[in-house]
């Protein structure tokens, strides 16, 4: 009859342990809720004062207490777009190099180097960007790009600006994109690539017709990942974007992003309304990240379902 007794302290301990883990797990829900609530309530003075116009207004005038997020949002989107545009093809090419072109020992070295790019903290990208890369942009790359037609590459070559930020962001997301793409390529079943190669395809054709379509969903997932990283990057951008609340057509022009505006102005915010406006900027950034996360996870879930089939 001994096992009829419920007295076992083990059973009690099991229940307590289980509840501790549940409380810990619940804390993540609580955190996300608290972040949303705190940002909203602290941004409220600005939300109620400026309403929806906050998003579309390009004003940023502490003297007249007029604030709008448009230039920060614009800068965030443009710098991220530049970063993705540069990093996507390059990371794809590096992933190709690592999986199909390079001999293993070279692939190992190159793979490590690319991974190490991710180990450099963003503040160091910022210092290097401001003190070394921006002057290089100003003296070498920008004068050369200025020869190209169109308004994108016009205006004074300041070194710092939207383009410089985009390039540095591209460097920073490169390792993440490369890692995911490498995994995607490595997952292409060898039967497929071998039979394509057996038909006389060149290795690029194998990649283009077999590996990329096969891993397309994974590649899109990688893009989401890179997007999420680039969009909230703070320190590196703060150093090199020039910090100006203006929307300019040229990529040479200085600008700002939500994160850089926060980093630059939050500690100096002396009026409650300015502080609220800055927190509302943060709230917008949070909303953007949330949307990217939801899309990415929905995408991944459909990916898993497809693979399970």
């Amino acid at each position: 009859m001994s096992f009829l007794t419920r007295s076992s302290t083990h059973r009690q301990a099991d229940r307590i342990f289980r509840w501790i883990t549940i409380v810990c797990a619940a804390s993540t829900l609580l955190l996300v809720g608290a972040i949303l609530w705190n940002l909203m309530s602290n941004a409220w003075p600005s939300i109620s004062r400026f309403g929806f116009g906050f998003i579309t207004s390009t004003q940023w005038n502490p003297v007249k207490s007029e604030y709008g997020a448009a230039s920060s949002i614009y800068g965030t989107l443009v710098s991220t777009a530049i970063a993705l545009l540069l990093a996507l093809p390059i990371s794809l090419a590096i992933a190709l190099f690592l999986t199909s072109y390079a001999p293993p020992w070279i692939a190992r070295i190159v793979g490590t180097c690319v991974e190490l790019l991710a180990a450099i903290p963003s503040i160091i990208y910022g210092m290097w960007g401001l003190f070394v890369f921006a002057p290089f942009m100003q003296k070498t790359l920008q004068p050369w790009l200025a020869n190209l037609p169109g308004p994108l590459f016009s205006g004074a070559a300041l070194g710092v600006g939207m383009l410089t930020s985009g390039i540095i962001l591209a460097l920073m997301i490169l390792p993440f994109l490369t890692a995911v793409m490498r995994d995607v390529f490595a997952m292409t079943p060898p039967v497929l690539t071998e039979s394509a190669a057996g038909m006389g395809s060149t290795s690029w054709e194998v990649t283009w017709h077999i590996s990329i379509p096969h891993g397309l969903r994974g590649l899109v997932g990688a893009t989401f990942l890179g997007l999420g990283r680039a969009i909230g990057e703070t320190m590196a951008v703060t150093f090199v974007i020039g910090n100006s609340h203006r929307i300019a057509g040229s990529l040479f022009a200085p600008g700002n992003t939500i994160a850089s505006t926060l980093a630059n102005e939050f500690n100096e915010a002396d009026s409650p309304l300015l502080e609220a406006a800055l927190i509302e900027l943060g709230l917008i950034l949070f909303a953007i990240t949330l949307i990217i996360q939801i899309l990415a996870q929905l995408w991944l879930r459909s990916l898993q379902k497809q693979q399970a089939r």
């Binding site: 001994s2 096992f3 009829l4 419920r6």
Partner: peptide, 8 residues
């Protein structure tokens, strides 16, 4: 039965 001490 639910009362069983599984550990035992």
């Amino acid at each position: 039965s639910p009362g069983t001490d599984i550990i035992a």
